Amino acid sequence: MNIFRLVYAPFGKRLGIKDTRPRKAPNNPKLEAAYRASPKLKQPCGLAKQLDMTERQVERWWRLRRSQDKPSTLVKFCENVWKFTFHTGNFLFGLFILWDKEWLWNIDHCYIGYPHQGVTDDVWWYYMVSAAFYWSLTISQFWDVRRKDFWQMFVHHIATVSLISFSWVCNLHRIGTLVLLLHDCGDVFVEAVKASKYANYQRTCDALFLCLIVVWIGTRIFIFPYYILWSTTIRAPMLLPMFAAYYFFNALLCLLLCLHVVWTFLILQIAYNTIQAGMMEGDIRSSSEISDSPENSNHSTSNCVNNKKNT
């Protein structure tokens, strides 16, 4: 993206982030073909015999080749700053357009008059921009470096896209806008913590991480289930007759809540490690790449970056 090269990359360099490139693996067409067939080194002994190399030479080539596919710290910083920019802008835009909407202040208005609820231009744009962003994350995930939390994030993106699409088709856009607003609020701090960590602004990172814990738990663990889910599961049936599609909509919301609980546990794990170490040594919702090296293979749960591990 041009914005990465023209804006975010120079900004990252001014903060002292170096665009270091790993040493390239020697040209070896047969090893390259084996790597493209499966990035995980499964049978180094067999490859070594086929290519008349030692097993150690094959493993060294494989490590170098894997490191070529990993983005540099500057690239990861740019990615997080871009997401931070989007979530901040989208949250402020959502807050601006919903400020005068009655359902922001009284959630019962999400159902009163349903399904004859018109869509204003600002809500239309809010929905389309959010849908485009999450569709892009879902698709680009298959081309980006594979992360350890690939499937968790894939399920999250699919659930989010399904909720956006389903709520739009079923004219449940009012409750949908509240869910979008709530999620953008927490994601602002997720990306800010990552970016400050890459820039080595440790004190800023620690302060933002504390804010993240407060905002994340407040929005994802309290407001989302006790306000949004309570409204869709308990209050809504009191105000309008239920239909089959509505239960599917609620099931997707419950799936999001399950992911929130898992990620909250992992964030609190990092917080505990932070207290023990005296600084934030982990990352949020694991952005780390999968590695075959022994020192990385013993680390962490599926989507938590443990101590001393790169994002």
Rank of each mutant, 00 (worst) to 15 (best):
Y127T: 10
Y127E: 05
M128D: 10
M128A: 14
V129E: 02
S130L: 14
A132N: 02
F133C: 03
Y134K: 02
W135D: 04
S136E: 02
L137W: 00
L137V: 11
L137A: 14
L137C: 14
T138M: 09
T138V: 09
I139P: 08
S140F: 10
Q141H: 04
Q141N: 03
Q141K: 00
W143G: 13
W143H: 02
D144S: 10
R146W: 15
R147C: 09
K148R: 05
K148G: 06
W151G: 04
Q152K: 02
F154A: 10
H157L: 01
I158G: 09
I158A: 11
T160C: 03
T160N: 01
V161D: 00
L163D: 13
I164M: 09
S165K: 11
S165V: 01
S165A: 06
F166Y: 05
F166M: 13
F166H: 01
S167W: 10
W168I: 08
C170I: 07
L172E: 04
L172S: 09
L172M: 15
H173D: 14
R174S: 00
I175V: 13
I175P: 06
I175W: 04
G176M: 01
G176N: 15
L178W: 09
L178T: 07
L180P: 07
L181Q: 06
L182D: 15
L182V: 15
H183C: 08
H183L: 12
D184V: 10
D184N: 12
D184G: 14
C185H: 14
G186P: 11
V188N: 11
V188G: 11
F189Y: 05
F189T: 04
F189E: 00
V190S: 15
V190Y: 03
V190E: 12
V190H: 12
E191R: 06
E191H: 08
E191I: 03
V193I: 15
V193N: 06
V193T: 12
K194S: 12
A195I: 11
S196W: 06
S196Q: 13
Y198M: 12
A199M: 06
N200R: 02
Q202K: 15
Q202V: 01
R203G: 15
R203Y: 08
D206H: 11
A207Y: 08
L208D: 06
F209S: 09
I213H: 04
I213D: 04
V214R: 00
V214Q: 00
V215K: 10
W216C: 02
W216I: 05
I217R: 07
G218D: 10
G218M: 03
G218E: 04
T219E: 14
T219G: 04
T219I: 14
R220W: 05
R220Q: 00
I221E: 01
F222T: 01
F222L: 00
F222E: 11
I223M: 07
I223Y: 05
F224E: 04
F224V: 08
P225E: 00
P225C: 11
Y226G: 15
Y226Q: 12
I228C: 05
L229W: 08
L229D: 15
W230R: 15
T233I: 15
T233L: 15
T233N: 06
I234V: 08
I234Q: 10
A236V: 12
A236D: 02
M238I: 10
M238K: 03
M238H: 09
